[in-house]
């Protein structure tokens, strides 16, 4: 059996999740503490991947990344980056696709913390950064774990977006879910079953692990 698609899936999910973790916490903090007119708009935008068909998302990302259009052309010309049909493109697309799974649980947890914790930190002379790092984050660890795991599992299960912008290039964009699709198309049910079973076991273990660590149902974030 060819393990490459499985490893590629894990690599993609790992990189995406780590970057999302660093981007998601500040974003969730801003959303939890901001009361501007733009907040509902921004929240809706971040939540779109939850309801949008992956093909729709994939199509627009493909158009955006394509060197034939403005943004893609700019990337290629100034940064020499081509995101279409490349692993880098998959990472960027996965980040957009999995963003709500990271941001929403963390934002909900930050909003549920008493505001007096932050204010106590302020009257003790600490900056908002120190308060976030040393007071808020340690008190929302379960939500951060939930967000991390859900993002990871969701990225592993990604299919439509990847097929749209990554295609099916072995070793570069052929992740496990795409490999399953290809195996079924070529009537290689044996390989499809092997990939599918491995994905099933991995995702089950991850989600089970998080609900075990949190000691309660993992969907408490969905408030």
């Amino acid at each position: 059996m060819d393990w490459q698609p499985i490893l590629l899936s894990l690599e993609l999910a790992g990189i995406t999740t780590v970057i999302l973790l660093f981007a998601g916490i500040p974003l969730a903090y801003l959303l939890a503490n901001h009361r501007s007119r733009w907040k509902p708009f921004l929240e809706t935008l971040i939540s779109m991947p939850l309801v949008l068909p992956p093909t729709v998302l994939g199509f627009y990302i493909l158009v955006a990344f394509s060197p034939s259009y403005l943004f893609g052309a700019w990337l290629e010309k100034w940064l020499a980056i081509r995101l279409v049909f490349s692993f880098g493109g998959l990472v960027v697309a996965s980040m957009i696709y999995s963003l709500p799974f990271m941001v929403q649980p963390i934002q909900a947890a930050l909003q549920s913390l008493p505001h007096s914790l932050t204010e106590a930190g302020l009257t003790l002379g600490k900056s908002r950064w120190v308060i976030l790092r040393r007071i808020l984050i340690p008190n929302i660890r379960p939500a951060i774990l939930t967000g991390t795991v859900l993002s990871f599992a969701h990225t592993i299960g990604e299919f439509g977006v990847i097929l749209m912008i990554g295609g099916n290039i072995p070793g570069r964009t052929r992740v496990a879910s795409v490999a399953i699709f290809e195996a079924v198309e070529t009537l290689n049910y044996r390989a499809a079953n092997a990939y599918a079973l491995i994905l099933l076991v991995i995702t089950f273990l991850i989600v089970w692990l998080v609900s075990w660590i949190n000691g309660r149902s993992f969907n408490t974030w969905n408030r």
Binding site: S116, L117, E119, A120, L122, T123, G125
Partner: peptide, 15 residues
């Protein structure tokens, strides 16, 4: 800013 005022604050919920 609150950080640069010299105040101690005891909150109702203790915080």
């Amino acid at each position: 800013s609150p950080q640069h005022r010299s105040v101690g604050f005891v909150f109702q919920d203790y915080a």
